[in-house]
Amino acid sequence: MKAAYTKPFLTAALIVLLDQIIKIWVRKNMFLGEEIHFLGNRGMLRYIENNGMAFGMELGGEFGKLALTLFRIVAVCGIGYGLVYLIQHKYHRGLIMMVALILAGAVGNIIDSTLYGVIYHYAPLFHGRVVDMFYFPLLTGNFPAWVPVWGGEDFIFFRPIFNLADSAISVGVVLILFNQKRYFKQPEPEESQPHSEMVED
């Protein structure tokens, strides 16, 4: 691999490192459910742990948890292989960087779900919980009574609590979708130029 393509891997490694530093700090300095406000009531750290996917979604039961962790490991291997393939075939560097972000996010959450249960002595291997902490309830209120299904219920945007790994995955996926025409543009064939002939008088 060319030296220029080491940047995506270094970026991914940095994201994984920062993600784990934040999670370890939160575990050591906050208790479950504690909040530290840094943007008033519109931005805060709120320490939670979840058994599932990004933004707190999860599969039910112990089998669901194990299946999800194993799926994550297989997915990371696939993404890693894909990243190497993109580099070897000289795809758009923006696409390569976005895939590196997705890989970093997946690895960051795999560390939690695979090892945290063993490291912190609360669950066997592959049954750890993912640490989440960033919470930005930017808009709050109530749905009007006339709104179907949710009428009268509380409204919060943005409700999910997430971590840096989740953010890396989301940014990578969204930017790939927005830039797919540029990232997957087929190179135009070079036009052959006729050899110019020197005409002597």
Rank of each mutant, 00 (worst) to 15 (best):
L83I: 12
L83N: 05
F63A: 11
L101G: 09
L95T: 05
V76F: 06
F71W: 08
K90M: 08
F63M: 11
Y116L: 03
L86W: 03
N109D: 05
Q88C: 12
A104I: 07
Y116V: 13
V74M: 15
T114L: 14
Y81N: 12
Y91L: 09
L83C: 10
H89M: 10
Y81V: 12
A104N: 10
M97P: 12
L86S: 13
L86I: 08
V76W: 00
G82L: 12
R72G: 08
I102C: 04
I79L: 14
I73Q: 08
L86V: 07
A100P: 09
I87N: 02
G64F: 03
L101Y: 04
H92W: 15
G61Y: 00
G80K: 06
H92F: 12
G80Y: 11
L95M: 14
A75E: 14
D112Y: 00
D112P: 12
F71I: 06
H89G: 12
I79V: 15
L68A: 01
F71S: 12
K65P: 01
L95Q: 05
G64W: 05
I102N: 00
Y81A: 15
G94Q: 07
T114G: 04
Y91E: 15
G105R: 08
K65Q: 06
F71Q: 11
E62Q: 06
E62F: 01
L115G: 15
M97S: 14
Y85G: 12
T69A: 02
E62C: 00
S113E: 07
G105V: 07
I102L: 04
L95I: 06
R93Q: 14
D112E: 07
H92Q: 15
T69Q: 01
L83Q: 08
K90R: 13
M97D: 09
I102P: 00
A106M: 09
A67F: 07
T69W: 00
I111M: 07
T114M: 11
E62D: 11
D112R: 01
V84D: 04
L101K: 07
V76N: 01
V107S: 03
I111Y: 11
D112Q: 05
L101R: 04
L83R: 09
L86G: 11
I96V: 13
T69Y: 01
V76K: 03
G94C: 04
S113H: 02
L103K: 03
R72Q: 10
Q88V: 13
Y116T: 10
R72I: 00
A106S: 10
F63K: 10
G94P: 02
T69V: 02
V84Q: 08
I96N: 01
I87K: 04
A106Q: 06
G64A: 05
